[in-house]
């Protein structure tokens, strides 16, 4: 299971990376915004994408739209982990095809639940 973590803050990437490792996912790579992440996704074989919303360059919601518009990536499960908390934004992300939405600050338990739920649905 190869996971790409996209966030403009290295500390947040590190926190997510550590939590994912605790959950048994140690094959992770990092990108600091959508512009860097998209070519990595297109050229690598990732099974899961965890992305922030608000980033310089390409935002997480735009990255999500690009992923869903790409023939190769359209089925990639995407979890958004973000401080963006407006109802309209959550609806927008849902309409853009996000698989899970976690608001910051979050707990290890919440991240675990959402990831498990996504895989349950993807595999089931």
């Amino acid at each position: 299971m190869k996971i790409l973590i996209v966030d403009d803050f290295s500390t947040m990437r590190r926190i997510i990376k550590n939590l994912l490792r605790d959950l048994g996912f140690s094959n992770t790579e990092e990108a600091d915004d959508g512009t860097t992440a998209l070519p990595m996704l297109e050229n690598g074989h990732y099974d899961f994408l965890v992305t922030d919303w608000n980033m310089p360059g390409m935002s997480g919601i735009d990255l999500l739209r690009k992923v869903r518009a790409s023939d190769k990536l359209r089925a990639l499960p995407v979890l958004m982990v973000t401080a963006e908390a407006k109802r309209d934004q959550i609806i927008e992300a849902a309409q853009a095809g996000v698989n899970g939405y976690v608001v910051k600050p979050f707990t290890a338990q919440v991240l675990k639940e959402k990831i498990e739920k996504i895989f349950e649905r993807v595999n089931g």
Binding site: W53, N54, S59, G60, I61, D62, T82, A83, E84, A85, K86, R87, D88, Q89, I90, E92, V103, K104
Partner: peptide
């Protein structure tokens, strides 16, 4: 909205924001 707003400071006082 594409740019995002960052953390909401008064989430408990706003109807349009999740708490």
């Amino acid at each position: 909205p594409t740019r995002g707003e960052g953390p909401q400071i008064h989430a408990d006082k706003r109807e349009d924001v999740v708490s």
